[in-house]
Amino acid sequence: MSVTQNLTETLAARLRGTVLPAVVTPMDARGVVDHGALRGYTERIAAGPVGGVAVWAHTGRGLYLSDADRDRVLAAWRAAVDGPVVAGAGVPRAVGPVGLRDAVDATVAMAVRAAEGGADAVMVYPLAQLDGDDGAAVALHERVAEASGLPVLGFFLHGGAGGYPYPPELVARLLALPSVAGVKLATLDRAMACQDAIDAAGARDGKLVVTGEDRMFGPSLMWGADSALVGIAAARVELTAAVLSAWRAGDHAGFVRASGRLDRFAKATFYAPIEGYVQRMMWAAVWEGLLPEEAAHDPYGPVLPEAERRAVVACLEGLSKDDDGPASS
């Protein structure tokens, strides 16, 4: 067995059955990262029921950060979390529009930087430049793994977030690579695409099928996902973990209750404009006491009306009242 394959199998075993929050990056209204707020946020998230964290992901605006900020964000989470740290790798926004070769080079460079910073695995953003070329997608994952020396997660990201939807045949090819630990699904609302991708994984020989389906979280577990890497856990770790734990324990009544509660929160945070979910998650993190108000800005998403914040808070208050009332006993 190669060293890479051994690392891949070890990572899959550590992540199976766990939740990895796709964490936000605390920023002010100008987009300046608040590293003081970040330290407090890492400590609070790390104290929860997490199997690790995902940094530089879409929720954390990883492609928008400077190299220096990415390095400091990774270092903060590496210091706080005992479990694996998975880092996103793609084309930084500063690079601008590029062709496929340059996009691959930029993705590989970001993956190498993640390895140098102590990441345990790389989640490869789906490149729009692939333009349906499955062979190029496979080659991209192979090159990232070889250059970084880290296990890789394929990332099936919906088009609304700038992703490239991998067909089932490509999912199967990626999972056949020794360096690929699993595939992360984020189809948003495409139930058939999610089911088809999970089916394409087949027996998958120890590989992970990681749900990123915030609006289809419970169903994706029922369809066969075995771990989670989700933006919704950037603010609601305990509730997200409760759904996964109940499902894996065969506690179907507990699963239905927890899944219904998570669905209520997802409905209040993941909807059009979908890019607004990052700001909504930051608002939730403020309410939860995870972030200070001044560090809860997403300058890269749409400007949202105050009514949306009130709806997020109302949902959280309602869930909290349920926790305190007879229905939670």
Rank of each mutant, 00 (worst) to 15 (best):
A68Q: 12
A181H: 04
A46I: 08
G289I: 07
H252N: 11
A266M: 06
M27G: 01
A161S: 11
T10G: 10
M123K: 14
L319M: 03
G88L: 03
A186R: 08
A249M: 07
D133H: 08
P292H: 00
A311L: 02
V312I: 12
A106M: 07
F156H: 10
M123W: 07
V256M: 06
R93P: 04
V286E: 07
G250M: 01
D199P: 00
V124I: 02
R101L: 02
L262M: 13
A253V: 09
A200F: 10
L229K: 05
Y41Q: 10
F255T: 03
F155P: 15
D69K: 13
G17S: 04
L208F: 03
V50G: 05
P21R: 04
H141N: 14
G202K: 08
V91F: 02
V98G: 02
F156Y: 08
G224V: 05
P84H: 03
V108E: 00
A225I: 08
D323G: 13
H58W: 02
A111L: 06
L290F: 02
Y277I: 13
S2A: 00
E308S: 05
S220V: 12
G254I: 14
R14Q: 12
V122Q: 05
S148Q: 01
T187G: 13
I274N: 01
G52H: 10
E294P: 01
D196H: 09
G99L: 02
V95G: 00
D28T: 07
R16S: 04
A258I: 11
P178M: 11
A176R: 11
E43S: 07
A109S: 10
P273Y: 11
K184C: 05
V3N: 03
Y277F: 15
D120Q: 00
S245M: 10
